[in-house]
Nucleic acid binder design. Sequence first.
DNA 1: ACTGTCAAGGAGAAGC
DNA 2: GCTTCTCCTTGACAGT
Length: 272
Amino acid sequence: MEFPDDCSTRLCLGFGPTSTGQRPHLRAVPVPLNRDDGDHVLWPSLSLGLLGTGTYRSTASAPDTGMAGKQLFLAESISMELHREVSSIFNNSSSCTKREPEGDELEKTVMVSDEEEECGSRILRRKKLRLSKEQISILEGSFKAHTTVNPKQKEDLARRLRLWPRQVEVWFQNRRARIKSKQTEVECEALKRRCETLGEENRRLQEQVQELKLLSKARQAVMMPPFLAQIQPPFTACPSCGKSAKSGGTFPSTTFFASSIPKSQLLPQPLS
DNA sequence: ACTGTCAAGGAGAAGC
DNA sequence: GCTTCTCCTTGACAGT
């Protein structure tokens, strides 16, 4: 069984019965082919070799050795664990993305095509991990209790969900980000509604101002004698205060006259 | 083809 | 210096 070259090392981690059938090294522990048969054994061995040299036969294409399914499964499990450990070492210094294969994906993940696994030659294809409903529900449950995870909880969850601790961490980070994003969305909607309300209020007040202006003008017209309204300003500045008249404006200005009108008459009256 | 979703990468900040 | 966080971005994939 060979594992993919995840990190462009061009090296391959292999696990399985040796192709020669010989004891690979002195510390190797034999796996009996049959529970009661101590004479016929396989010599499982872990080795590092060049990619594609086929140090070990894939279990998928291996001839029927008679090895019990249970034993084969055990061997595969151990090998996957080893692969996981070794990969984690490489992944810490690599941008290659790996995921923990789950259940029936084990073989599929191990047997990925050369193109997909060859990150060394820049044919990188990040595998999209889709968490299962069960995994999500467990994560959600944990998130409800605490929106952050401490290292211990992370490890526990990772083990329980058969994920990498890093994946659990990332899920929590993204989950918090989604909550924040949703909150921002809600706040944005609230601000929009407030803006609309204020706009409406502003429009209503503008109308009120226009009405008051018209009312004020009408009152001034009543109080100002018609002959005065026709007088052209003989000067551009007030002789007493020295203030100049605004361009286009008339003098005596309305404020000039207004100053001589009792304040009570100038104040706007409530609209009927 | 386009768009939305979401796991993951990376930079930078904070806390220890 | 390490870990963990936030923020922003990227890329795979599914739905339309």
